[in-house]
Nucleic acid binder design. Structure first.
Lengths: 343, 343
DNA sequence: CTGTTAGCGCATTCAC
DNA sequence: GTGAATGCGCTAACAG
């Protein structure tokens, strides 16, 4: 077939009978180029027949633009990030960018991740996904000296795309209230974190708007693990004098733990206690009973973050802090009216 | 602080009072370089004080090596791939490589993914994850003209790292047989696919070894979705004269669907029917009852594939087809001895 | 309208 | 031991 050596601009130029720079000008695709129709056609045709693909490395070296985004995530196996990655990849691809992915362990102190990606000229910008608890995230990011966008969290006025978890929590509680529940517990994430605080505010806000008291003993932090959710549920079960009739869980993961704890205790979901979770992903349909959730635009968050970053890179758009509203409820089987005798 | 322009070799050389080429030689890190101790020290120190980071683009252009692996996956939100990505990223990082990630929709015919990554000189090799049903995968991969490793599937003698799903299926059935089951159904993936056939062989093999008949009416294809698993289970429930007392599910995802269908039908798991699934991931612990699974080295598959690819890139090691054995059972709550009256 | 010139930052002969 | 020269493939001024 074809020779081993990859075809370069030089080959195209030679075949078309023009200079490399001319070929470059035409294949660069910029509209207002002065060129004879004939020459343009020859170049285009030569490129096609040779299956020319520009060397991204050389181009990037010359133009100082890689058309690559660095995406740094703390976990891969969390549906929140899986879906965000997917959204970011798709949006980036639509605009001609690729994603270079890197893991950053938030516990292990390896501050260099961002600087390494940026300093070696491999990416044009950074997409930094974060859980609640990342230390000096912004400092590290700023040290990288290139555009960046925070994902799943916002800090000050730094460009970011996060979810409006306060609204999500409110909507979740409102759903429970509408079903008739009056004693609603909250299995929280980490109370201090960005999302943790927002959820708490939404939870209390919805209660307050309904004229219900804010009872801190109904709130139990659980972190973001299955076991954490289960333990929090057990604590609520032993501590609460009249049991709650419904629970708002901070995430899918802790919700499943909570449900497992309820099964263990012989409590029927949703007959005795309803459970609703924030975030929606395939696994919500996989647990038993299928989880009612507040749908949260995870994929859109990734896409929006990628787009914002590209805007920043290309246009130098002003800083933006985006908060994406929840996109509704997925009502499945884990919520129902409270038992009749609960009043 | 520092100026805006990034520090290059030239800056280091100037500060150290040597030529760029000399600085390059030393900073390149190759052992046998003839250089005065004094000069070497000056160069190293200059590099450190300027926080020099080599421009990966320029280096790659010059050496035709990017130290980047292209990772192409059909899905992001499947635990199998999430974990494999994680393993690949970690292994690559250990050996100084980065991961450029791309999505390839197996339905949508976009053959160019591999060639685009390779032809633009962005990656040194390709890691191609695949479900069972990818069309002309190998052709597309070969067209890319760079080293590649298949993941989760093997085809002929092409380098690949897959899971020994035949053994996994066998181990799963053996567990059920050891509990006393004699009527074991199989919710399969796609019967024609690589993994589908292997699982089927393992399933029949275990049955045969125990002197049990191979009953095709107990095998039901389900694809790889929750709903597919549920439907397959419903079909088994209506079709099978004496119901099976246990089910081997091809994946976690279809297992959860099957369990949901059993719940619907009012059948108790594991009291009336036991369920075991192949693959293990956090969600296995999240469903109710917690799923007993055959543990499968998903992360190791990603890591091994990355390492094999790097070996191929660096050494030109001969072709290798690796099959990773399952790493045991995670016995949870979804399997138990059959009901007494089932014999 | 098109070719010439000049690097982007680095690694690699080859002289000295 | 070390520096000068060269080019990876491409784009961007600037001439002509």
């Amino acid at each position: 077939m074809s020779r081993d050596h990859r075809v370069s601009l030089k080959d195209v130029a030679k075949l078309a009978g023009v200079d490399v720079s001319t070929a470059s000008r035409i294949l660069g695709g910029k509209p207002g180029q002065r060129i004879s129709e004939e020459a343009r056609a020859r170049i285009l045709e030569a490129a096609k027949s040779l299956q020319y693909q520009p060397n991204a490395l050389a181009r990037a070296l010359r133009t100082a633009r890689t058309f690559t985004l660095g995406l740094v995530v703390p976990q891969f196996d969390n549906p929140v990030f899986s879906l965000a990655i997917r959204g970011a990849e798709a949006a980036a691809a639509r605009r001609g960018y690729s994603i270079l992915i890197a893991h950053r362990d938030p516990d292990h102190i390896d501050a260099g991740t961002y600087e390494r990606l940026a300093g070696t000229h491999r990416v044009d910008g950074l997409l930094a996904a974060s859980l609640d608890d990342d230390r000096n995230l912004i400092e590290d990011l700023k040290a990288a000296q290139i555009p960046f966008v925070l994902m799943n969290r916002s800090v000050g006025t730094s460009p970011s795309v996060a979810l409006d978890t306060e609204s999500a929590a409110r909507i979740g509680v409102e759903h429970l209230l509408a079903l008739g529940h009056r004693r609603v517990a909250h299995i929280a994430g980490r109370l201090e974190g960005f999302n943790g605080q927002a959820r708490l505010a939404g939870y209390y806000g919805a209660l307050q708007a309904a004229g219900l008291p804010a009872d801190p003993s109904l709130v139990e932090p659980a972190g973001y693990s299955v076991e954490g959710g289960a333990e929090a549920m057990r604590r609520l079960l032993t501590r609460c004098a009249p049991l709650p009739t419904a629970v708002l869980a901070a995430t899918l993961v802790s919700a499943t733990g909570a449900i497992a704890a309820l099964h263990e205790a012989g409590i029927s979901v949703p007959r005795q206690i309803s459970v609703i979770a924030i975030h929606d992903a395939p696994i919500a349909a996989m647990v038993y009973p299928a989880l009612t959730t507040v749908r949260t635009p995870l994929e859109a968050m990734g896409a929006s973050a990628a787009e914002l970053l590209i805007d920043l890179i290309e246009g130098g758009t002003p800083e933006a802090v985006r908060l994406l509203p929840p996109s509704g409820l997925s009502i499945r089987k884990s919520t129902a009216p409270p038992p009749l005798d609960s009043a």
